[in-house]
Design a binder for these strands. Structure first.
Lengths: 321, 321
DNA sequence: CCCCTTATAGTCGAATGGATTATAAACGGG
DNA sequence: CCCGTTTATAATCCATTCGACTATAAGGGG
């Protein structure tokens, strides 16, 4: 029985010419003591990746195999991010690469063997994204003036006002509210404006001191920004945070983890109310004494909600500015 | 300058063995007179698709080329859905296919030439998804008893209660609220239970009269269900509906389009209030007389919101049951 | 014992959003 | 020409949500 669509069947004669190489790329995230981290290889400038090969049963299992081989970390939760193919190989052959990127959530302590990998803070790569201690001075001191200068460079009036508008929305100029979910738009804006080193790497003209954040190989920082935006959006309606938590935790620890991901602080009573009324967690009966103050109740995730929340979704108090 | 990650570079020697074929698949959606339709080729059982080839500048442009060639429809809005690779080719060679699926929104009248393609209603393929005239009788008469029977077939007690639970959530048994976004889960549940013909096509054992909805080739109906779920979710926070509307429309036409997509009715005053207070549309000053009653104001989409709504998102009154 | 810390409980009020009712403006039939 | 029908448009009511704030509880250290 042949289930292939007609178009594919007709194109069969030239199939050899249409072969591509498929690459799997992983953004592996953990949060430790309120610091969100990503698993890197190389000099901290490269995400775990490898070609999708015949021995892999599926895309996911291929990804797990590569990450475990390169970093020693077994992966739990995995979610597909995006598939890219715009990059042509630079070498002589006309050869294309399709990159299929994934977001994975895990915990640091899952590490088994020592490998040439390292956990790096998200905010090394995106220092403008951490608003937990207020708006980073980097924005007002460096990014805002440079973005406005870039906007002023536009050839037409429409281009200039469009650029100003985009910058103002993404970076919350003029008393606009900061929206943590716009991480990808912000990176793309900085890229367009030549304020991240990746944008000017090929043309060696612009001095690299005008750029912000630690750079990564190829488009890996862009993929990381995609993961950041996706995760910041997803924690608001799906209980994925718990993939990053130890089996037992206090509500404040949970809150600090969410805050680390969102890059902003959350009102404490409201956070507790929301978590409790959704019945996401269950008291263990134990308490934690190393809080520095009154002992905190310990909770564990109610795994039953993974079935239930398909209906209602989860909520976190991150809606407004 | 070589930007490739190390893993890929190391795996280069065996690169030839890792070649795959990449296929692009499109779910092209339009809504006409309150009926949501999908663009099909073949006997209405196949989505437009074709291999990703060297002449395509990008995945998106390859997709546009294939759809235009096979159906004569130019595409506007395009959004990546998902990348599949679980399907191995059935022929002798060990050859893998990666399918990259896209959702496209357009309007029927965009058709240029006549081609071997046809618009088919979504609900031909998913008759259980249209709740605009109340819950389809199909659910209570056919699906519910068969799903419960399938649940009862489970070997262990845990399996049986798990199946009952999943079916109850997905299909709103026991006074649960109907959630239109669970379209994919519902299709997968019916697939598992052997109630869609695709599931039993290979094993010719089960009679096909026990299945529901028009079938499609390969996993195309599954991809269509993915698109349905994605679109039903997305219209709630992004102004994508307007891609499906003519340049000028009445608020009721807009509402009927949303209802067609969501498969459920919306409260009229609330819908109008939400659209107006978000300033998504602008009055043209004209009115439409062919309403059958009082003339309705004609509106057009405020394209400026495409920049603004990155911040706030759009809302539609589809939140609760 | 005071004071620091953190945990936990409760309140107030603005805004959201679902449901309902009321009024306006076209048409067609008797 | 009135009147019922249909659809558009406006306004109101009310439960719930959710951000901001205050108050009380329970540990440790000087």
């Amino acid at each position: 029985m042949d289930d292939r669509p007609k178009a594919t069947r007709n194109g069969r004669a030239a199939a050899k010419a249409k072969q591509v190489e498929a690459e799997l790329i992983a953004v592996v995230v953990s949060v430790n003591d309120g610091e969100p981290a990503v698993l890197t290889i190389g000099q901290g400038d490269c995400l775990p990746s490898g070609p999708f090969a015949l021995e892999h049963r599926s895309l996911q299992s291929g990804l797990r195999a590569w990450v475990e081989q390169q970093t020693g970390h077994p992966l739990g939760y995995i979610e597909q991010l995006y598939t890219f193919a715009d990059r042509d190989r630079a070498d002589g052959r006309q050869q294309r690469v399709i990159s299929i990127s994934y977001l994975a959530l895990t915990r640091k302590e899952h590490a088994t063997g020592a490998s040439a990998c390292a956990w790096r803070s998200w905010y090394d790569y995106f220092p403008w994204e951490d608003h937990r201690l207020g708006t980073p001075k980097l924005i007002a001191d460096v990014l805002a003036p440079r973005l406005l200068a870039w906007a002023a460079e536009g050839e037409q009036t429409a281009t200039r006002s469009e650029r100003r508008r985009r910058a103002a929305i993404a970076f919350a100029f003029e008393d606009r509210p900061w929206n943590e979910e716009l991480a990808l738009q912000r990176y793309e804006l900085l890229y367009e404006a030549g304020l991240v080193a990746e944008a000017t790497r090929d043309e060696r003209s612009i001095a690299s001191d005008s750029t912000a954040g630690t750079t990564m190989v190829a488009d890996h920082r862009r993929i990381l920004a995609t993961a950041l935006a996706r995760l910041r959006s997803k924690i608001k309606y799906r209980p994925v945070v718990f993939e990053l938590m130890p089996p037992v935790f206090t509500l404040l620890q949970l809150q600090r983890t969410v805050e680390a991901l969102a890059g902003r602080l959350i009102n404490k009573p409201n956070f507790r109310r929301l978590i409790e009324q959704q019945e996401l967690v269950e008291e263990t009966g134990e308490t934690s004494l190393d809080t520095g103050g009154r002992p905190a109740k310990l909770y564990e995730f109610r795994h039953a909600v993974l079935d239930e929340t398909a209906v209602a979704g989860t909520k976190l108090p991150l809606a407004r500015g």
